[in-house]
Simulated assay, not measured.
Amino acid sequence: MPQEDEKSRSQLAFADGLAEVFARQVPRMAGRMLGLLLITDEPRLSSKDLVDQLGASAATVSNMGRLLIGLGLVERTVSPETRRDLFAIAPNAWVGTYRDGERYITEVLALADRVLADPDLTDIPRARLRELRNLYTFVWAEIPDLVSRYEQWREANGPEALYQPPGRSST
């Protein structure tokens, strides 16, 4: 049992660390939930498991689950035996976030282009919007190729490989 307690503490420490990293994008509890789903040995965790391990309410787990599902990071199924929600990391969750980002980027670019077309826009905000538009356009033009190259690398090297960028030492 002490080894299991240590493992649980280690898993929660990882979940808490990930929550801190993701705190700018999602609520802390969503980050903790994502972290726990990443680090658990189980293929899926029930909503009850998440409530118990995270010390969260059932409503919070449900709401954070919906948020993570909407972001394409988590999938939910229902256990036929217990009828409880089961949560797991979505297949290709990380690649999917880049692929699904197209709608967001497209909306930001359309909005920036509309405002940049305004003849009454002054120089300072025009420069800021141009910088935003240029960076988003540049990055978005590169992402499909990067994701495709990553998928080729993953196919060639398998899921156990750790990618090391050329010219960078491992950490």
Rank of each mutant, 00 (worst) to 15 (best):
A56P: 03
P165N: 05
K48V: 13
Q3R: 12
R114P: 02
G70P: 08
G17S: 08
S47G: 15
P80F: 09
P119Y: 06
K48M: 10
P27H: 10
T122W: 02
E102N: 13
R99A: 09
G72Q: 07
R130D: 12
V95L: 03
M64L: 05
E160R: 11
E4M: 13
S169Y: 03
A141C: 06
K7I: 11
R154P: 00
A90E: 09
P165E: 13
A19I: 03
L34W: 02
G55D: 09
L34Y: 13
Y150N: 02
W94I: 10
P119N: 02
L109K: 08
L45T: 01
E102G: 09
R84H: 15
R168C: 13
V74T: 03
R83W: 07
M1K: 10
V21K: 10
L162C: 11
M33S: 07
P125E: 06
R66N: 15
E4D: 14
Q53G: 02
P166M: 11
G55N: 12
D100A: 12
T40R: 04
M29R: 10
A88F: 00
P43Y: 05
L109D: 00
P144W: 06
T137R: 15
D16G: 03
M1C: 09
Q3I: 13
L36Q: 05
T171G: 15
S8V: 09
R99K: 10
D49K: 02
D52S: 13
L86T: 01
E131H: 11
G31Q: 00
Q25A: 12
S79I: 01
A161N: 08
F87W: 13
A30D: 00
Q164G: 01
R44L: 11
M64W: 04
N92M: 10
I69R: 15
L45Q: 06
N63K: 14
A141H: 14
P159S: 15
D85F: 15
L111P: 00
A161R: 04
P91D: 15
A56V: 12
R76F: 03
N63E: 12
G167F: 04
S169W: 01
I143G: 01
A90M: 05
L162V: 14
L132N: 06
R66W: 06
E75W: 01
T171W: 11
L71F: 04
A90W: 03
M29D: 06
